[in-house]
Design a binder for these strands. Sequence first.
DNA 1: GCGGCTCTTTGCGCCAGCGCAAACGCGCCA
DNA 2: TGGCGCGTTTGCGCTGGCGCAAAGAGCCGC
Lengths: 235, 235
Amino acid sequence: MPSTAAVAEQLAATDLFSGLAPEALDEVARLGRVQVLTRGTRLFEQGMSADRCHALIDGRVRIAQSGAEGDQVIVRFVGPGETFGTVALFTDGRYPAEATTVIDSVEISWTEPTLLDLIHRHPQIALNLVKIVGSRLREAQERLRELATQRVDQRIAHALLRLAERGVVPGKEDAAIEFPLTRQDLAEMCGATLYTVSRVLTAWEKAGYIATRRQRLSIRKLSELRRLAGETSTI
Amino acid sequence: MPSTAAVAEQLAATDLFSGLAPEALDEVARLGRVQVLTRGTRLFEQGMSADRCHALIDGRVRIAQSGAEGDQVIVRFVGPGETFGTVALFTDGRYPAEATTVIDSVEISWTEPTLLDLIHRHPQIALNLVKIVGSRLREAQERLRELATQRVDQRIAHALLRLAERGVVPGKEDAAIEFPLTRQDLAEMCGATLYTVSRVLTAWEKAGYIATRRQRLSIRKLSELRRLAGETSTI
DNA sequence: GCGGCTCTTTGCGCCAGCGCAAACGCGCCA
DNA sequence: TGGCGCGTTTGCGCTGGCGCAAAGAGCCGC
């Protein structure tokens, strides 16, 4: 279990607490509960009463939403420094999706009263929150447009570009997705079937645009993928 | 042009300023700019630099996003009391979509510095904002799931239910959509084509579930539409 | 009351992507 | 090291919804 000081330092890099003074970060770190989780751990279920706000310190968490008929959609993959499971606190108090670690991870969370109290004393947190939720809304609306108007291969290309975003270095053609990702995952991210995703990826691998191993994927020709995505993206 | 007092009263019913003291509402009303707009007025364009936060006092505004190839998607229809064009202020400062009145409308807006100042003095506004953006994010993610997993007719049913939501009275089977809405609009709301929407609506009209006139639509059998939507909705 | 514009309907052909089935193969664990 | 389970590939047939074209029908302005 990391020390409070170490946690405070990592909180400075989170989207929710950026811009806070060091003393404030110490306080935030002290009030949170840190958990070390092995891969495959379910943090919360869809529909569960939401009583905590979460931030990921290290690892990767998959957020997925299920429909009544068992159909699933992946909302996003959460990386280090990102907030999750927080919107529920401000809407109807139930998690709208489930969260599962895809690799060993470390998270920190705060109870709702604690968060509200922190916001009260550090209003910057509320502004950060608006910014976070706003960007996510914007991304969701972009995905909606894609899903409504683009072909499957364009959407898959977009999904890959988004997933690899963190590893992109300007001018470099390679970028890796550093966590396990199945064809099924990709399909659930872009409204396709496992089969279609497999066919498309196989074609791209043959063309040399990407390289895949079991549950691993890396991009070899970023520019080609961008072209395939339709160059519409702002990534 | 309405008086400040009248405006303040209406602001109490908006999602952004609910919970504020009457004096605060007076102040908010005084600082805003009220505009009376005829139908078809463009309030802002996609990509335009965003310098104002808007709230609709009366009328209806259509928010639509365009892609690079001219493809359009309707993000939502804004009704009285709702905030719009505000997320842009907290993200990259550009409107991600365009806004157009579909009927004669009245809006009020505030400059970014004014809004930030108001938030500073009335932190409740920030919390309201998180709540608003959060609900919208949730709805966007629900639509994403629908678009990814459901058939066109289910999505059309959902779209109609959402549009008629305000007019729904528990126990009543009828509900009207009180603003002009073309087949094209509906298609752009649920990722379908004008033709498909027309075919589906014609079938439903023959079945007696809905009634349509040119650009007008009302629901006659809410329960049937709910069944068609798959009863998965939380509406 | 007439002309034209915009919205709407409908027929028809077509194809992107689905979905089943079955084989394949990587990696883990015993 | 051998077997097994899960992820992946691939063939094949099918169909939901697209998309063109053209006709039909409200509504507005002149």
